[in-house]
Design a protein around this nucleic acid. Structure first.
Lengths: 371, 371
DNA sequence: TCCACGTCTGAATCCTTTG
DNA sequence: ACAAAGGATTCAGACGTGG
């Protein structure tokens, strides 16, 4: 499924992290050479004093220099300039994702429209574990907003509808995505054990973005690369990436991270075109959340069969592909099969049913109830 | 808890639906007279009569750069004008809610910021039953966005934190709200049995908005009244409303609807309140009243520290003296401390928080409070 | 080995009254 | 006006420790 390279693509610094100012670096790249841009620009939080939790511990605020702007006017000029540089780089059918909070997302969205980008969806990242509002003065700020836009109205943008539907276990993917914030082992630390970047995004978020709106071999640019989540997920998924990052400390962490990332199997990257029904916890979430890796092998209940996990949450095994249920049924020659109890994965030599993982997600999904 | 009426409030056309252009009608109302505005403005640029070029020519289909830019310009002017009229009406501590989709919400949010409104939250209305995306070209657009903003940064806006927490089973209300779209009996029909309004909002949404950010007796204005959901819920909740609607057909439906609405019982309107709303009790009163004796010892929450009560209602312990809060903070090395929950006294061998005594005093005061 | 429990932390525009 | 003081306020999840 490799596409013909765009003109000038051979000169692109693929799978590298460029240093310096993102606008200058973007302007030095050839026009019309990028398939997708993912941008997580400074939010301009405008924080004032300190904030303490009720237990008197201090909240580690995002007070970095790179997030300070003196006025909306200055922020708007910055937004206009980097978006213009980004737009120039996109292929005619290219698209962009931006992410932000209420502090900046309205300015981002309006400027996207002003420049002729065509808004396709706004997507809500609903955090399953946000920081509470400690003073009880507002609603818990439990989400961030992403905007997905094509370069222009006429763009034939990439959208892997069936893959996303498969990720969502047969139901159309909605514009609100429930994904935990980046914590635990995934959260990168510096030498001192502190977080390496104040706003590292979860890989599950980028996984969904890239599966949805790119194909293997596409070139993905992230002009605010940070510690490289976009690059890491792009590499796993067999996309090429270009990162731009100003801060040397972030670049160093990202380089080390990317060196360790391994691409998933080619088979796992081929996206499903099958159609299925069935609601409930989508198996694809186990993949998105990194509980199971694309390419990982699952074992049937009697250990007579095995199958490989694909990036869109389908299985492939012995020339059979489809959902966990379909593949189980086929291999057993049965009319139906409950994939959740049929399939098992291995951890440290142990065989564990995948249903265990579903239960973990269900426990996290307490927040799905009406609020 | 009746508030003093604002100047000019006696001239307000309370609980009425005004006809005509919302900007003109808003400009005819007295400045600084409204507690809360809820606005669901149109975003369809072709909406009849709402938007004109300066020369009154028709806005063509949005099919090239010039037209796109021109139509955004017109929409922005419309947004600027009605928001300015709305802002003039708000009391200094007033607030506004606006609702929109990705077509217009970014322009609304940016203009709110430009005019000096202070964004408090963006809220995602997550529809539990959205219309699917039939063509499979995008994500199911399963949400709309609301913005909650105070008139200015310094505004002491109304937020009934405890009431919302109660609505959410004792957990802080988040910025994502799961509410079904308006269907079934709630959906108003016209004479022919068709839906009376294309975008009727669910009462559950307005219920949450008004419980959260108004008090009984507040004046709520809706400049795009439609079929009157804001008014209906305001009336149920014992708030006064003013509606403005230019379409006669909508006004008629709204009038009929509002005539049928009945206000809830006063008891039902009482919501949980926070401690902040309770009267302040100086610690010295406990000593004055003999509930605690000078010289008596108090014990910290973990029983790690103790201090002696002095006749003037200060504490002394371990070379530290001052208020119950100051001494607690000093002993804990904390930036602040709530002495009421930190300190305990002994009676018959039992350890009891001093807050119990404050509550006794408050209970006695309750009898004397004016209603 | 496993459970119970305590600790820590996350893009946060996070107070109100008195003097 | 500004400064000082009173005193109200948290959820989910990861991780470590101790029994």
């Amino acid at each position: 499924m490799t596409k013909p390279k765009a003109k000038g693509a051979e000169t692109l610094p693929l799978n590298q992290i460029l240093s310096g100012d993102c606008i200058e670096r973007m302007n030095s790249l050839p026009a019309g050479s990028i398939d997708l841009i993912f941008a997580d620009p400074p939010y301009n939080l405008q924080l004032k004093g300190d904030l303490h939790r009720p237990d008197n511990s201090k909240v580690d605020a995002v007070d970095d220099d790179w997030d300070r702007f003196d006025s909306f006017k200055i922020y708007d000029r910055f937004t206009r300039d980097w978006l213009a540089a980004a737009r120039r780089l996109l292929k005619p059918n290219g698209a962009i994702w931006v992410i932000g909070s209420y502090h900046n997302i309205f300015r981002l969205g309006a400027e996207l429209q002003n420049q002729g980008f065509w808004l396709l969806n706004d997507v809500v990242w609903r955090k399953s574990n946000p920081m509470p509002n400690f003073r009880g003065k507002r609603l818990t700020n439990a989400h961030e907003t992403l905007i997905w836009a094509s370069k222009e109205e006429a763009s034939k943008y990439t959208f892997n509808y069936e893959a996303l539907k498969a990720l969502n276990e047969g139901v159309q993917m909605r514009s609100d995505w429930v994904i935990p914030i980046c914590t635990g082992h995934e959260r990168l630390k510096d030498d001192k054990g502190d977080k390496a970047h104040p706003t590292q995004k979860p890989e599950a978020l980028l996984h969904r973005v890239l599966v949805a709106t790119t194909n293997p071999g596409d070139v993905v640019l992230d002009p605010f690369f940070g510690t490289g989540t976009t690059g890491a997920v792009a590499k796993m998924l067999g996309r090429d990436y270009i990162g731009i990052e100003r801060e040397e400390s972030y670049r160093k962490v990202a380089e080390a991270r990317l060196a360790k990332v391994r691409k998933f199997d080619r088979e796992a990257l081929t996206v499903s075109t099958s159609k299925r029904a069935e609601p409930r916890v989508p198996f694809g979430q186990l993949v998105e959340r990194g509980m199971l890796r694309p390419g990982e092998e699952l074992y049937s209940i009697g250990n007579r069969h095995k199958a490989k996990v694909r990036a869109d949450g389908t299985l492939i095994g012995n020339d059979v592909k489809g959902s966990i249920h379909q593949v189980g049924a086929q291999l057993e020659g049965a009319p139906s099969c409950n994939g959740w109890t049929y399939w098992h994965f291995k951890r440290e030599g142990k065989i564990i049913p995948i249903d265990v993982l579903r239960q973990q997600i269900r426990a996290e999904m307490g927040d799905q109830r009406p609020h």
